[in-house]
Amino acid sequence: MPELPAPRIRAARPEDDGELALLDRLAWSHLHAVTPAPQPPYAPFFSERHAPEDCLVAELGDRLVGYVLLGFPTELESNRHVRQIQGLAVAEEARGLGVGRALVGAAVDEARRRGARRITLRVLGHNTPARALYEAQGFAVEGILPEEFLLDGVYVDDVLMGRSLGAGPTT
């Protein structure tokens, strides 16, 4: 079997907005989303909360197949040393090809480059593929909010994960 090319990770550009918004809608699932399914009219992908410089994208060939959003967990100055993964999506046809791993590794590296000492995230308890991905990238469970969300009639835990940026795998 021929070896598949590694995804190319780059900073998002404003002109990626439409493609990212479409990817986000197509990837929506209660496996990872606590918000209702997107409905028209669709909002732009970039906003005051997440500008292009807060987003890294993955490309396979000339196709955008994933993204990761980095932000601050709070607006507090005392928390500025921490970055948070605030969104991750991989196109269905690109799952299992190392795209998620490459994006999380790039987010860790970018957070470190920006001077962060820690990186955190929140993941739904039933999202075992994402939890395994994050654990493989050095994240550990730091807290659980039991039954924090009611999704499709099922109570789901909110799992808080984090890691120091001083050590651990990033790719």
Rank of each mutant, 00 (worst) to 15 (best):
P146H: 04
V123C: 14
R163E: 06
P7V: 00
H81R: 13
V68C: 09
V34S: 01
S78W: 12
T128K: 09
S164H: 05
H81A: 12
P73N: 06
R101S: 15
H50N: 03
G100V: 04
P73L: 04
G162M: 02
S47E: 05
H32D: 00
V156P: 00
L23N: 11
A111Y: 10
R118H: 10
A106T: 04
L23P: 14
Q84W: 04
L70M: 05
Y67G: 07
T74G: 07
P5S: 14
W28M: 00
Q39N: 04
L69F: 01
S29V: 00
P52I: 03
Y67I: 03
E75Y: 13
D157E: 04
A27Y: 02
V154G: 02
A33C: 07
H30N: 10
A140P: 06
Y155I: 02
T74S: 15
L23Y: 12
N127L: 10
G138W: 01
R95T: 09
P73E: 05
G66F: 10
R122Q: 15
E3T: 13
A132E: 10
E93T: 11
E110M: 05
Q137F: 06
E19R: 02
A58M: 00
G168P: 07
E77P: 06
G71E: 14
F45R: 11
R83F: 14
G143H: 04
G66L: 09
A167M: 07
W28Q: 01
R117D: 13
G166D: 15
G143V: 05
E92I: 00
A91D: 14
V156S: 01
E48V: 11
G87P: 04
D16S: 00
S78Y: 10
D157M: 02
G66C: 09
H126M: 01
V34T: 15
A102P: 10
E147I: 03
V57M: 03
T171S: 15
L160V: 15
A89T: 04
F72P: 03
V104C: 08
V68Q: 12
L76Y: 15
F46L: 00
R118C: 03
P169M: 08
P44R: 03
I144F: 11
G61K: 00
A116W: 11
P40W: 01
D157L: 01
